[in-house]
Design a protein around this nucleic acid. Structure first.
Lengths: 167, 167
DNA sequence: CTCAATGCAAAGTATTTGCACGCTC
DNA sequence: GAGCGTGCAAATACTTTGCATTGAG
């Protein structure tokens, strides 16, 4: 029995809820999956192990996991909710590559402190926060650079130099 | 003709698109509205002035405004897209009161700088970013405090003090 | 006259809800 | 055995798409 599972069962008992095979399975799959997953993702993964589990149950259990403090809901702005491990996982923020979709997790105590300071300035009691940085990751930048170099070599007649860039 | 309108028409001409009464109206309503609005909100506002305009057109025009640099899409995590003025409006971040829904806009050059530094550390080329701070605003904190004080004083036999709240 | 724009209705996407039955405590 | 939990299908909420018609350039 992992620590997470204990947390889950304690939460369930405390709330007068019941332990079921579906919840066990969903928790297992959640714990076995690194990184972020949407409700849909988890449903798909669970279905592979037991196709009889309904999506309703997955969504409801995901909320249960969040209540229990095992999962954290993150929204990246694509309209769907994503979940990530929250138990004994330090808070972190995300850099999202708009090219390849890769997500880099990072943590900056300075950023956290500065946000606390801003909140204090507005007498705002901070509950949580979400920082999402969108851009191009190192890999995709390298690829773009290589591609550009190849183009520049090949195209001698290269008259039209379109303004790229983005602000 | 405002500056924004000029920007819009120039964008339209540059792209070989057409100026229509609907787009004019939608732009006007958008410019007249302060703060954030969702696609739906704008559709409702436009409908008041001209009920024949379809929601499709509103959504499409909103994207057009974004392309033209007049609007900025912001997502607060409720699943719908919100838009705010972007032309000659400094970038800013948001504090969202989870009690009353109020949105406080703020700007912190230190935060921006720190984010740039974090991006550089990961060789990440930053395109844009979104910082959302969720908590309780000063007003709601005061209300909660007052209510708590009243409860502590008044309720000796403390029978039915229904928890109100949630707006 | 051509191609973009419009508006309706239908489809799509992600998630939630009503309800009858089943299972845990 | 009581009541929570489940799964199905339908509902929801917001947004997008197909298509025939309208209208700007």
């Amino acid at each position: 029995m992992t620590e997470e599972q204990e947390v889950f069962y304690q939460h369930i008992q405390k709330k007068g809820l019941k332990r079921t095979a579906q919840r066990d399975l969903i928790l297992d799959v959640f714990l076995d999956t690194e990184g972020h997953m949407s409700g849909e993702d988890l449903y798909r993964l669970v279905s592979e192990k037991d196709p009889t589990v309904g999506q309703t149950t997955v969504y409801r259990t995901l909320r249960l996991l969040t209540d229990a403090g095992l999962a954290r809901e993150v929204r990246f702005g694509d309209g769907r909710a994503h979940y990530e491990h929250n138990y004994k996982h330090q808070h972190h923020d995300h850099m999202i590559c708009s090219d390849c979709g890769k997500i880099i997790e990072f943590y900056s105590p300075e950023l956290e402190a500065l946000q606390d300071a801003m909140a204090a300035k507005y007498k705002f009691e901070l509950t949580s926060h979400l920082l999402r940085m969108i851009g191009i990751c190192a890999d995709c930048r390298r690829k773009a650079r290589d591609q550009k170099r190849a183009t520049e070599k090949g195209v001698t007649v290269g008259s039209t130099v379109s303004a790229s860039g983005r602000g």
